[in-house]
Design a protein around this nucleic acid. Sequence first.
DNA 1: TTGAAAGCGGTACCAC
DNA 2: GTGGTACCGCTTTCAA
Lengths: 332, 332
Amino acid sequence: MQRRRPTIHEVAKVAGVSISSVSRALNGNTSNAEMVARVEAAVQQLGYVPSQVAQSLKTRHTAQVAFAMEDIGNAAYLEMVRQIQPVLRDAGYRLLLHSTGADVEDEVSVLDSLSQNYVDGLILCPLRVTGRHVAALRETAVPVIVIGLLPDDVSVDNVRADSRVGARMAVEHLYAAGARRIAFIDGPIDTVPGEARYAGYRAGLAACGLPLDDDLVEFADFQFESGRRAAREVLTRTDVDAVFGANDLIAMGTLHALRELGRTVPDDVRVVGMDDTTLAATSFPPLSSVSLGSADRGRIAAKLLLARMNGDDSPPERVTVPPSLTIRESSR
Amino acid sequence: MQRRRPTIHEVAKVAGVSISSVSRALNGNTSNAEMVARVEAAVQQLGYVPSQVAQSLKTRHTAQVAFAMEDIGNAAYLEMVRQIQPVLRDAGYRLLLHSTGADVEDEVSVLDSLSQNYVDGLILCPLRVTGRHVAALRETAVPVIVIGLLPDDVSVDNVRADSRVGARMAVEHLYAAGARRIAFIDGPIDTVPGEARYAGYRAGLAACGLPLDDDLVEFADFQFESGRRAAREVLTRTDVDAVFGANDLIAMGTLHALRELGRTVPDDVRVVGMDDTTLAATSFPPLSSVSLGSADRGRIAAKLLLARMNGDDSPPERVTVPPSLTIRESSR
DNA sequence: TTGAAAGCGGTACCAC
DNA sequence: GTGGTACCGCTTTCAA
């Protein structure tokens, strides 16, 4: 292993033709079938593979696209990846994943450098959008699609979810199922999703004519364990006949807390989660969950990016993917 | 956006020096502090970012590493990614993920082309190892680390789990807990893990003095739904007091099948899974599972690869990470 | 120290 | 149709 790779010159020598002819034959820019055959024989014999680095330098095109997100371990991003990957692969692009690790500086540096290097396009899921993000977005050398909220004055293609409406849907569904004391376990209130989901929860209560009771609300950090703790807190503190968890992990923690407290689901307490990850379908009982359309957002972003990389220069698009509720046993 | 990027020539012109000097200043190969300052000012002013493509062509070094696996959605691979990513990033490499989609052709083509292009190294998790894999492995232009089983005569660094021993541990644990009719829901028998786990299951039975009963064995495809179906099959076909699922998804499917059939866990039937993913801890009841050390394997593979890329040419290593069993309620 | 120039491995234009 | 050659943007000798 680790042998030096043959170059186009060696292929040319073996085939007894010029490098121009080799290049043409390899790229289908010749009509001489015999030439193609000779070149291919030489390629075969040498095990030649064109250097994509050299091709990129010349063609200014890397056949790579980056997807930068907070954490590849997050199920929602994972779902996006699974949608983005095939779309881009079919179009001949490799996908490069970049976990920013929730670091804003790192995110900006991805924009600054990654976006200008080695990729033909970038899909970015920013946690928060800072002034530096905006500045960097204006300077990028390649098309960028942002998944998530973006200030209105930034003219970049943008695909967003609507977790506010999604949260409201969850509350209205629980109300329709008969619940009147609907608890809410949110993520951190100082994050974009945490804040939007809380707003949606309040909107849902208002729409149903229910009062906002602070005893029914608790904040966790979008993880299973902290969700369980927060749920225990609320469940022992006040009367509850339904719990809406701000994501599926929190809802799963809630299911465990309920079980520990001897409450049954959905008879005593109904539960709804959010994100509709695979966790929801495999939990016991299967968890109702509001999907924010991660898969759709990923697919749409990929297609949008593809169009931009193909030279589409119509005005920036702003797509909002509507949420949808999947009702399973936990709230039936 | 989409402005043309400045090149080193423009920086040189603005700074009033030659491109050689710019290059030197940027790479710390000069001792003239004033020169560095002038160049940096020009860089700042122009927003210059060196083209990594051009650098790579010259230096034959891309600062990229690929990790090719079956499906990034699989929790075990995800865990590897989370370990590999930081190790490589700290060493200045970007990680490129490639989901092969369980397609052998695709896997080989990754070896053939990706390994020779655009990356300085490759970590590969092959599902099956074919003759073509072996041939491709001998030809690679960059270091490759294989995670998973590899024929002994292939001299490539190899980090492996021991799912055979892991499966045996599961069976012995279930036997010790009192089970005598231990069913096994395997993945496809023609995959490396499927085969190894089956062998481990048989070894476990033998060690416990239990007979091998074909009625107790069923094959699924490592997914939740097919695991559930296969479990139903076995559970309705014969007498069972324990089920060992070849991965956590299959075991989760088994838990659901048991519930549908009105059997309780662990009282009627004990269940053990494999891979010890986050699913195991959040399931109901929490699932006992054999960890194959995915995180460790990922970390070790990354470090091995780093060493190889740094020129380490000692004989190929073969590391085996031992399995470990985490006992939770499902088999208590 | 600094600048000129020769590549790295391709592509594509240009004469022939 | 084919081969010679000028780049792509950078690094790195080599002289000055």
